Simulated assay, not measured.
Amino acid sequence: MTKSDNGGRAAVKPGKRERLVAAASRVLHEQGVEKTTLADIARVADVPVGNVYYYFKTKDQLVEAAIEGYAQGLQAMIASLDQLHSPQERLKALLGGWAEQRELAARYGCPTGTLSSELGKRADGLDLAAATVMQLLIDWAEQQFHSMGRSDSRDLAISLVAAYQGISLLTNVFHDPELMAGQIHRLEDWIDSLA
């Protein structure tokens, strides 16, 4: 435990496993799976590299844990968005969150999209694990469009996620966060036009 600045109360430092998963998520996003080593992750997590093997026997196990972390983060975000009144508000809040991350996308792309793209070239199960995170987002967006009374809700959900993934790629390729800002505004107008 470490002492915090919030009234002298103690704050619990995340455990080694949690720090390793968080570090893996960050480093994998920044460097990609192939370039990332367990030593890179251990350094960012502030965990001795020998301790990594206590929690994860292979790099692939750590990659899988990072994917699970992405899924949990997405589920938490969805739970927060689901508190909003209408499906249009929920979808536009999702877009707002993406817009807030445009600087990060300009540097490294979408965390889930880049990881899914890289792992999609493999056929070892990690490709399917990454795909489930993307599927979770598509399914949620489909529910929102369905709640708007759209019979083409599946197609609209795929269009929304595809548009975001495409602009994330271009934002990264051109290192221009304003590309994403402009496209997010267009997507907001598009959602309004569907109501």
Score class of each variant (00 low, 15 high):
145 F>A: 00
170 L>V: 10
180 M>W: 06
67 I>C: 13
19 R>S: 10
24 A>S: 02
157 A>D: 01
99 A>F: 03
165 Q>K: 06
172 N>H: 13
22 A>W: 01
155 D>R: 00
76 A>R: 13
34 E>Y: 14
64 E>R: 14
145 F>Y: 09
36 T>I: 09
140 W>A: 10
148 M>A: 03
110 C>A: 10
62 L>K: 05
186 R>V: 01
3 K>I: 12
9 R>G: 02
56 F>E: 03
54 Y>G: 00
77 M>V: 05
98 W>T: 07
188 E>M: 12
51 N>Q: 13
36 T>N: 09
52 V>M: 12
51 N>P: 02
183 Q>S: 06
184 I>W: 01
5 D>Y: 13
194 L>V: 04
167 I>S: 02
64 E>W: 09
61 Q>A: 15
35 K>Q: 15
53 Y>V: 10
68 E>V: 15
190 W>V: 01
104 L>E: 15
165 Q>Y: 08
19 R>N: 05
54 Y>P: 00
25 S>T: 11
141 A>I: 11
151 S>Q: 07
122 R>L: 15
149 G>E: 07
17 R>Y: 10
84 L>Y: 12
124 D>Q: 04
55 Y>V: 11
123 A>H: 12
179 L>R: 11
136 L>G: 13
147 S>K: 00
107 R>W: 12
112 T>R: 02
88 Q>D: 07
103 E>T: 09
37 T>W: 07
8 G>C: 04
107 R>D: 14
51 N>H: 14
73 G>N: 08
180 M>A: 09
162 A>F: 05
169 L>F: 14
191 I>W: 00
183 Q>C: 09
44 V>G: 01
98 W>V: 14
109 G>I: 07
116 S>P: 03
103 E>R: 08
192 D>T: 10
166 G>F: 00
131 A>Y: 02
66 A>T: 07
124 D>V: 04
153 S>G: 00
172 N>A: 11
3 K>T: 12
28 L>E: 02
82 D>N: 15
168 S>H: 06
13 K>C: 03
132 T>H: 13
90 R>M: 10
91 L>K: 03
61 Q>Y: 08
190 W>E: 04
100 E>N: 12
100 E>F: 05
137 L>E: 05
118 E>P: 10
161 V>N: 01
1 M>V: 09
50 G>K: 05
31 Q>V: 00
84 L>F: 13
162 A>C: 09
125 G>K: 08
132 T>N: 13
21 V>E: 04
3 K>H: 12
116 S>Y: 11
